[in-house]
Structure formats: C-alpha cells, structure tokens
Design a protein around this nucleic acid. Structure first.
Lengths: 237, 237
DNA sequence: GGGTAAAGGTGTACAGCGTACACTCGGATG
DNA sequence: CATCCGAGTGTACGCTGTACACCTTTACCC
C-alpha cells in the first residue's frame, strides 16, 4: 500500500509565524488576532506557535520588528529637515499599510532592536544637521509618536463600524441637537473642505499630519538658528 | 428570633458603579479592572453590574465622563494662549491622577457628551481669540492628543515593572553593548540633566510636555498673525 | 544503518474573561 | 392584600492565553 501523499508540511519557524501574524492582522484586524486563529491560519495546533515565540507579547514584539523594518532608511545627502520629513512620511506610509500597527506600537513598553535602530538613525539626522545634543533631546520628545507617522487624534472618526442605517428622521434630529449644543464643533469640522467644495466631509488626513509636522519642524529650525539651550541664559554661574 | 442584622445593603446605581470603577482602576490599573473584580469590590455578583451599564464598553465610556468632568473649565478673561495652556495643563493634572486614563481615552471611538463639551469650549477659546474657523480646524488637529494633556512617547520608560534586580555584571555588559550599537541614543537620553548635574536619570516630563506645547502654540500664533489660510494664495480664481 | 538526543507539533486542561438567559426576591403601588 | 417591576442572583457558554505531558519527526554521530 503506497502511503497517502500528504501536503509537504512545510516546517514552521519564527519568521513564518511573524509574517503570517502580520498578514492576518492586516486582514482581520488586531483584535481578531488570537493565538488560536493564527495557528489555524498556519494549519497547526495553537500550542505549536509557542515553540517559536515565548508568548503573545513576544509575538507582538516580533510583528513590530517586521513592520518597523519596512520604514525607508534615512535619505543620504539631504538637509536634516527634508531627511526627517521623508523618513516620517515613510513611516506614515507603513502605518497606512498596517492600520493595526499604531495601537501595537503604542502598547509596547520595551523597545526592540529594530525600534532602537530607527531611533538611533533618526537622532543621527538631527545631530548631523548641527543640532546640539540638548536640543535634539527635547526635539525627539516633541516629535513623540509623530516620529512613527501618527498622532493620536481627538476622536477617531474613521472607526465607527456596524452603525446600522438608522432612519433619516432620527439622523436629522440628532444633527439638529448637535447644532444646538455643539455649534462650534460642527463649524470646525465642516471647515474641512478647502475652498468651497461643500462635498468633502472628512478631512484630508495627509494635510493635517503635514501641517502639524511642518509646524514643529519650522519651530525646531528657529530654535536651532537661535542657538536655543534648555538652560536659558547660562550666566557665568 | 430576631432577624440577623445584615449590613444595610446600600443600593447600587450607575454613579456608584462608575465611581467604584474609577477608584479601582486608580488602585489596580486598567488591565486588572474586570467586571468580576469590580463586582466583588462592590460586594455584588458580576451580573448585577449589567443592570446599570449595558456592557464593559459603556462602563469605560462612563469612566471617561467622570474623569473628563474633572478638567477645569476655561479661564475667563484670559488671552487665548494662556487659556489654552492652562486648560491643557489642567487636563494633564487629571491624567496624572488617573494613569490609566490615557489608554482608555485613546481606545474610545465615539465621543461622549463630556468629551464633546470639552472640545466645544476649547474650540471656543481659539475662535474668541480671533482665529478663523479654517485655522482653528487645523490647529485642533495639530493639538491632537496633546489636548488631553498627553503625547504618546516613543517608548514608555516609566512602565517597566517586574524587572528582576539582575546581577550588576550583566547590567554593565548590557550598557556596554548599548554604547557600541546605539551611541547616539545614550547621548541623547543622558542629556536629560540640565546643566551638569550628572545625577538625573529620566527626564523632566513636565518640561518636555510644555516644550512641545509652547512650540505649537507659538507656531499657531505666528500663523494667525500672518493671516494664514489653508488655500495659500487664493488667487482670483 | 542504527541509536539517540533534540526540536517541532499535539492533546488535554485550567483559570480567567465578557455576558446571555432565566430565576428570585424586596419594595412600591394599585 | 395582590400585583408588578426592577435590582440582584446563579448557571452556563464561548472565547482567551498558556502550562504540562506526550508523541513524532528530524539531525547527527558511531
């Protein structure tokens, strides 16, 4: 009796696990990524994963390593301002590819090597651009999560799923109530449309991101030109 | 036989539940706050809570309402810049009292009334300060989560619990490895100490926060003075 | 080639979670 | 007194991460 030919049974390894995890998170979202679901995706029993990652936390760390490696390296021979700008916008592209990445990045407390590499080289851009160590320190703080290409918005209008159609009458009533109680919020949120294209509901995320980014970069530039230091005057003392 | 006197059995209500939840989160952290744990704290069976909040998500929304209400109202008769500054720093104080609040605020997708009130009145500060609707829109985006008194840091050095003492030799080795591979990160993080007080490891969070906040506020001021508009030239077209 | 040790994959089990559903009981109202 | 309603209870389900013991496949050495 010839043995039944089973599928070749490719062996698992850490990298296959991480790649699958990233792919699965891309597809079904991070909250649906469980060890069981991931194992199923890989055609394997849940506990098999634990031969390759210590626990779920380490899995998430590994996923961060994978996606941070996707960020472009710093542009060579560019002025610091454009170099930082390009880098951050590259990070932002990565985040758009992996919508779950933001919350995972936020949740990690201890930095992994890829993250440290990213920081090291970004710091290098500022230092090479003539920033003092002191100013670079504060500048890195001020960048905060913008370094990753995101800022926490006040509320995430994009995420509002499973909202049932709701009858138009109720919707109108709700909008009316809003205009009465929160007139300025409505005014502000409607300002999204540049010029007079009344159509555009929802803002141009890219514009908003770059608006704030450039505001900060311009601020950094001014401080640097003025020879800013955190001990303001540094008198003879 | 006289009936045994049981404790008076104060009745539960939504407010008692929310207050207890906030208090419990303050004590044991948000990840340890489960419906079961909260019920136990209130001397009640888990399902009893569901008579007062629809589900855990609504519990979290309620907790947000409680803490957002703790933020000071806008200062009257103050210039916009100081008014915003005071408000945001007040929010920051609230966040320091409730360390879990940051992650919960981030996780909420649909804004609750208290949150909307907060936004409405903050927008009011800018508009009253002479900002156009257009500029206010972008400015609110640029503030992002800083409006709540926090920014996502690149990595959260403060949270690193349960780190066992680790023998000094290993520690030295690790630091040595760091200096070789990430010299600039170390340089930057050691710049925390103002002047030459070599002691201070860890930065002055308040200083860093205000540094970035003021950088933004100054930027806003310049744009406003220059009559900035999002459609740069607005030619005759 | 045969023996052996390690590495990879499996199965079972447990404690914890949020919460659906059916119930009991106490207090207010007719 | 009867009734009714809402607060609190008890049980149960499906989900989660993962400890532990087991089996199977692979890699290597004599």
């Amino acid at each position: 009796m010839a043995q039944v030919l089973v599928a070749p049974r490719v062996r698992l390894n850490r990298d296959r696990v991480l790649q699958a995890a990233v792919g699965l998170a891309d597809q079904v979202g991070i909250e649906a990524l469980s060890m069981r679901r991931l194992a199923e995706e890989l055609g394997v029993v849940p506990m098999a994963l634990y031969k390759h990652v210590a626990n779920k936390d380490e899995l998430l760390d590994g996923m961060v390593e994978v996606i941070v490696a996707e960020i472009d390296p710093p542009a060579r021979d560019a002025e610091w301002k454009t170099a930082v700008r390009l880098r951050v916008l590259s990070a932002r592209q990565m985040l758009l590819r992996h919508p779950w990445a933001r919350s995972v990045l936020e949740s990690r407390t201890t930095p992994t090597p890829a993250v440290l590499d990213y920081l090291e080289s970004t710091i290098g851009i500022f230092l090479a651009g003539g920033f003092t160590v002191d100013l670079t320190h504060h500048v890195m703080h001020a960048m905060g999560s913008r370094m990753w290409g995101f800022t926490q918005e006040l509320f995430d209008a994009s995420a509002d799923p499973a909202q049932p159609p709701a009858d138009p009458a109720a919707q109108v009533a709700q909008i009316q109530a809003m205009t009465e109680r929160y007139p300025q919020i409505l005014q502000i949120s409607n300002a999204a449309a540049h010029d007079d294209s009344v159509v555009a509901h929802g803002c141009d995320d890219k514009f908003e991101f770059e608006f704030a980014l450039d505001l900060l970069l311009d601020g950094f530039e001014q401080l640097q030109a003025a020879g800013w230091s955190s001990s303001p005057a540094t008198p003879t003392a």
